[in-house]
Design a binder for these strands. Structure first.
Length: 124
RNA sequence: AAAGCAAACCGGCUUAUCGCGCUGACGAAUACCGUUAGCGAGGAAAGUCCGGGCAACACAGGGCACCGUACUUCCUAACGGGAAGGGGCUGACUUUUAAAUGUUAGCCACAGACAGCGCCACAGAAAAUAAACUACCUCAACUUGGUUGAGGAAAAGGUGAAAAGGUGGGGUAAGAGCCCACCGGGCUGGCGGUGACGCCAGCCGCACGGCAAGCCUUACGGGUUGAAAGGCCAAAUAGGCUUCACUUCGAAAGACACAGUGGCUCGCUGUGUGCGCAAGCAGGUGAAGUUGGGUAGGCUGCUCGAUUCUGACGGCAACGUCAGAACCAGAUAAAUGAUAAGCAUCCCGAUGUAAAAUUCGGGAAACAGAACCCGGCUUACAGGUUUGCUUUUUUU
RNA sequence: GGCUCCGUAGUACAAUGGAUAGUAUUUCAGAUUCCGAUUCUGAAGAUGCAGGUUCGAUUCCUGCCGGGGCUA
């Protein structure tokens, strides 16, 4: 698996897993995101990501697409912050009301990933 | 040349780095992995307003009801869409005292109001089977500036969206299509046109409005549900009941009727009858149906099609026929991207000039994201190209 | 995805196609009071948008815009 790849394995798409994440996971806010994460027992060696942009805040499908793509690129290029990969499920919920530039999202993504890693180590 | 309107078309490009989806090839290799090649959002993908394909279910035939459409002919798989034509309305030009005719541009949900019902506020004498009232004219009586009665006729009446054919003349006691001319209208016939309709001739003096985007009438069309349709597999769970067939047990029977509950069926409860000495009147397997429970994962449907491009021919056109070439998204918590740089377009400032070109810096670049697939319609849209029309200015 | 209903003052509701769109409440001003509340008087405030039918649309028709409900 490549260093910057983002294949289907790394996406969170199963309904059961999503429900599990939202029920058991812990969350924190880091502008412009709300982040929910959960470290499942056992290790598959792959972290899984879910990106959500509310239809209530962005009526147009194009706007939602651009935000989702920017967040995805930010995660893809910076995911090595979480090394070594474990069985982590993360949900990024975009809470800002306007479309933020890529540089801003990248910056916040790095900060949030570091925070997640710190919390996981503390829990263990 | 500029501005406006209408129609048609286009809707940025290139490179680098890192990525995503599908398909093919290769690597021990049909599913995972790697390498590599190809392809990968729109003119509206949108709204979901129409129409069709496709699928499942339903269906003798006819009628009623309900919904939709509405000048004619054609195009089409079909349409509420499109093309051509007809008619009407509005504006301009020509002509003219003015109209009509003619030319041209734009617009029109443009069937039926002597099949029926309903509505037409306010104002007004009257708002729809024509006329109560005022005023007009004639005669009579009383009387003399008038009043009353009888009759005539339907012209005049500050309204109103709409007033009962219009204008002019004759006629009369006063009037009236009462009569005449022109215009308008209706009916009949002929001719032309596939048809809507048009033209011509003759006849009728011709009271009877508007609204069907009020009910309605006529003609035509419409079965219902939608890809979360439908088919297959995996996983998981808990079976129950009914019917039928076979079988086991048994000597045989292994049932029947009525009532209650209930919308109905099954069922449950009760009573009676039958079989059996009595207990008791069953068990199992399979198929179909039904109810309940479970599963929310994969494959298929799924993208080659009323397809796209080019050319020829037919048609006024919409469009059709033929020939050749091409393969052009198939995602599913949902791919088609992110970042950086450059080019082209436009704007602003500077440089420069008679005006430009050039160069430098900065900025802008829309509407918008496939979800089974097509044909339309509607709505949104920076900027650009072409064509046509109108207006203004300049030059010859 | 499909089906269906509804948009009227700030709010909750009315209004056969027919005078200036009505009622309650809210807001503002005045009166009453020593000051408030209550009460009384007056005022302000609306048909979602754009077309069409009609002499005349809140009402009828068409197209947009916005909101709700049902279905799985």
């Amino acid at each position: 698996m490549g260093q910057f790849s983002f294949s289907k394995q790394e996406r969170l798409y199963r309904k059961k897993q999503i429900e599990e994440l939202f029920q058991k996971g812990s969350s924190f806010y880091l502008n412009p995101f709300k982040i929910i994460f959960w470290l499942a027992p056992g290790s598959t060696g792959v972290n899984q990501l879910l990106i959500s942009v509310s239809k209530k805040n962005f009526k147009k499908a194009t706007d939602r697409n651009t935000i989702r793509r920017r967040i995805r690129e930010a995660y893809r290029l910076n995911k090595r912050e979480l090394e070594p990969a474990q069985n982590l499920s993360i949900a990024y919920i975009y809470t800002a009301r306007e479309i933020q530039p890529s540089s801003f999202i990248h910056e916040k993504m790095i900060a949030s990933l570091k925070k997640i890693k710190g919390k996981c180590i503390a829990a263990n």
